[in-house]
Nucleic acid binder design. Structure first.
Lengths: 128, 128
DNA sequence: GACTTATATAAGTCTACGCTGACATAGTGG
DNA sequence: CCACTATGTCAGCGTAGACTTATATAAGTC
């Protein structure tokens, strides 16, 4: 299974965002996700299992609790996949700089269209 | 719709890989995808539409043909999302360097486990 | 106009996946 | 031992999305 297949779900992405901030109990993760996405504890647990089984998280027991931490190794796969597109970004930035320089020289045109601002936070399923 | 939602499908990822190599006709893309994934022309066309409508590709007409090119802007969203995990990669590399140095000093241990090699090419749905 | 090629769209089918409620298992403390 | 908390697992359900076949539309040729 490819990393993108795992990350194709907004709940799992959100879980990883939460774990990126630091190790957390299953219950704490579940509380946030239940609140944000309006799904049940077993649903969250299933997502945790997908992440665990695909290497995105590590888990250790502490009494009755399970503490989950992120394992970012599989995310390298995403980064590697992105590599083929990074050249395009640089080209577009170069083109934009050229356009701005031309705009300053000519002093007649309106401002160029601003690039898309990426989403700051993953939208919840409720918002879709 | 988040970029990861679009990229959560292996066909769409493969299409983008093909387009990253250069502009192509719908038909050419379709031929490769049909061969690799064993799906029909309309199925490929539907995926192209998802990509188009979510800004991942640009299309221009040339006679009866449609030429598709990649627009990598939405992929920035993926890159930004990845940002929070990059620190972890560096930590692991630092830890690995330390481990190797320790290994050389002690001269008694086997070689440390090698990191996961990322997949070179996206697996096809047939292979799953 | 009739025909061809190119490919997008429409309408219907099917199943994988994400969900649920119930409950099993593990651990703790009195 | 019992009651409780924590959370993973089970079994079943519903639907979103990926698929199909049929065909509409666009462009070009003779």
């Amino acid at each position: 299974m490819h990393a993108f297949d795992v990350l194709g779900d907004p709940v799992r992405r959100r879980i990883l965002e939460l774990l990126a901030e630091g190790e957390q109990t299953s219950g704490a993760v579940s509380a946030v996700i239940q609140e944000e996405f309006g799904i049940s504890q077993p649903a969250v647990s299933q997502h945790l299992r997908v992440l665990r089984e695909n290497g995105f998280t590590a888990v250790r027991a502490e009494g009755t609790r399970r503490l989950y931490s992120v394992d970012s190794t599989p995310l390298r796969e995403v980064d590697v996949w992105l590599e083929r597109f990074r050249g395009f970004w640089n080209q577009r930035l170069d083109a934009l700089a050229t356009e701005i320089a031309r705009g300053k020289r000519e002093r007649r045109q309106g401002s160029p269209g601003s690039p898309n601002a990426p989403t700051g936070r993953t939208p919840t399923r409720k918002e879709k």
